[in-house]
């Protein structure tokens, strides 16, 4: 093998050197002319261009959209309405009761997303920590179990939604199993509570492996002799966890929580395939609301959808800033130690 590679390298050496020599002079001349920074700018330009066209430009256009009304999809054909769409979104007699709101579906989506985010992130953090603690132990087949927990992360969200729909639907796997065991089957996905619980459960199942991995890395960074010192200090296992493991895990947990928050706010794919937003609107979240109102519904309103997406984007920007602050703080702490 080494021989083949060596021979290949030998054969390629001459043409590569020749090509390099060819490029060398112009490159140097260019660098002399524009300086290193100039060259860097040119190499960065293509990526910035793609970013500008596919991210920045649509973002700006989206903001423009959010201030227009009318049925045309084409921006210049729309009428300027200023902040009317935002007004419509935000006008509620009672903010805690979506029914009193002008745009009740939006507030239902907001409320659903809020409840989802709180429960899903909290539960998932706990599950991730427990999973990481278990995976950190010297159990048999540890590598296998780590792969098993991480596997759902690799699945496409549509696949995840489909798998669980097949399990949870009326004639699905779960009901078949319950029936065999003598229990009465229940139509889980038409039950408002269970459909929501399923949305939380399925999204935890699909993503916990990733966060468990981050927590696991944090666990492994805790020096073993701290645990031995705690043992010598006569510490009970529970206290070891609360007073030693958890505080030292805090930086990692913060990262996990913020990342999970950012992702949870955007929840869509798995749930849309699993429940379609039903029953009724009980699992309709913000992203689906924007999709429906902007594109899919028979009652389209693109300007409204844009406004909703800008509001949602605002929340995400805040969360991202928090994440950056946390990362910076962790880095500083790491440097000090």
């Amino acid at each position: 093998m080494a021989g083949v590679l060596g021979r290949a390298a030998g054969v390629l050496a001459a043409p590569v050197a020749w090509a390099a020599a060819l490029v060398d002079r112009p490159m140097r001349a260019w660098q002399n002319a524009t300086g290193t920074n100039g060259m860097a700018a040119v190499f960065l330009a293509p990526n910035m261009l793609i970013f500008g066209v596919f991210v920045l430009f649509p973002l700006v256009i989206n903001i423009a959209y959010s201030m227009t009304g009318g049925t045309a999809l084409f921006l210049p054909d729309r009428t300027f309405v200023g902040a009317a769409q935002y007004e419509r979104l935000l006008s509620c007699a009672d903010y805690t009761d979506p029914k009193t709101c002008e745009e009740d579906q939006f507030w239902i989506a907001v409320r659903n997303t809020g409840v989802f985010v709180v429960f899903q992130v909290a539960l998932m953090t706990v599950v991730a920590v427990v999973t990481a603690l278990i995976l950190n132990r010297e159990i048999r087949g540890r590598s296998f179990w780590r792969a098993v927990f991480f596997f759902p992360v690799l699945l496409s969200p549509v696949v995840v939604g489909l798998i669980w729909r097949w399990i949870l639907q009326r004639d699905g796997l779960l009901n078949a199993a319950l029936f065999q065991l003598g229990f009465t089957p229940h139509v889980w996905l038409t039950d408002r509570f269970w459909a929501f619980a399923a949305a939380i459960g399925v999204s935890i199942w699909a993503h916990v492996g990733f966060y468990a991995l981050i927590v696991l890395a944090g666990l492994q960074a805790i020096p073993k002799d701290l645990y031995e010192a705690a043992e010598m200090d006569g510490t009970k296992p529970g206290r070891v966890f609360w007073r030693i493991t958890l505080p030292l895990l805090m930086p990692n947990l913060l990262v996990v929580i913020v990342l999970a928050l950012i992702r949870a706010v955007q929840i869509f794919d798995e749930v849309f395939v699993l429940t379609g937003g039903g029953p009724g609107t009980s699992t309709m979240f913000l992203t689906q609301y924007i999709y429906e109102v902007g594109f899919a519904s028979l009652l389209k309103n693109p300007g409204l959808a844009s406004a909703a997406s800008i509001l949602m984007g605002g929340v995400l920007v805040v969360l991202t800033l928090v994440q950056l602050a946390v990362a910076r703080r962790n880095e500083a702490k790491g440097k000090r130690q």
């Binding site: 002799d225 031995e228 010598m232 510490t235």
Partner: peptide
């Protein structure tokens, strides 16, 4: 177990 032996240890890395 170690916790109940009444001994105290000073680790190489201080821990």
């Amino acid at each position: 177990p170690a916790a109940d032996r009444g001994l105290a240890m000073v680790f190489q890395s201080y821990a």
